[in-house]
Amino acid sequence: MVKMTYVEASREAVREMMHADKTVWCVGEDLGRGSVFGQYLGLQEEFGPDRVADTPISEAAIMGAAFGAAMVGTRPIVEMRFSDFALCATDELVNQIAKARFMFGGQSRAPMVIRKPIGLWRSSAAQHSQSLESWYVHIPGLVVVCPATPQDNYSMMKAAIKCDDPVVYLEHKNIWQMEGEVDKSLEVTLGKAAVRRSGDDVTLVSWSDTANKCVAVADRLATQNIHAEVIDLRSLWPWDKGTVLASVRKTGRLVVAHESVAVGGFGAEVVATVAEQAGDALRGPLRRLGAPRSLVAYAPNLEDQVRITEDMIEKAALETLGKSAP
């Protein structure tokens, strides 16, 4: 076990994988200076500017060129800086990377990790705060990963780099400095959820930083003698239906919470799946929490209007149990 922050964890995973596999390289803007959040600090010194490449501000070219380089046998780690800027490279990701293997009848692979930091972060306003994970889940060909802890950011980054499919890797900007114990020997299978708290009373399903809030809520509920099971999906495609359905069959109650917009969000997929496949096991109303379908503002009080809080998750959990908040 080593203590690491969330940002150190993925950096260490990248570093180790670059040592292990000479075809792994990083490409993006300002990587030599560590990129915006220090995810690459020291890597250019260690591996040189060819393997940690500083690029022009050309998101479409970063994505497209990395894809070309992947098709000839390298394994690029693509940095998009903020998930919002990745939208400048949507054609490259959605029409090219996600589809090439299929369209070409299996002749090509795109073993790429596409890093797109997501989420609300300190008055970043509407163009630097989005969580668009459900968009990517909608695109066949992509794997979608949302680690919430240092351990997962270490283990899942390694799994993502080893994966032969393109992995959209969504780190949350608000938890770069989150500390935790990391067991370097722990391997994660993409598509397998983490049960972060066990309990019989209510199932809380989430991912990314909101999963951390669910863990805090479970601890709060425990003081009221309510035992919540917290399932951190960790990856949204593939997603661990089996673990969610088994938990709901046990608890009979479900809350899904995510930071992104509720309408058309992945929470809807979880709720619909539970309703279809475990509806008979439900013993209380379902709750789905997500942001209002509105925009993220700059002023902190306005930003808070779209934030899913621990209080809201707690209230929803109690409602599924027919209780109101203390």
Binding site: S58, A60, A61, G64, A65, F67, G68, M71, V72
Partner: peptide, 11 residues
Amino acid sequence: ITIGAGAAHGI
């Protein structure tokens, strides 16, 4: 065009 540049980058 970007993909071709990238293939050359990989090469």
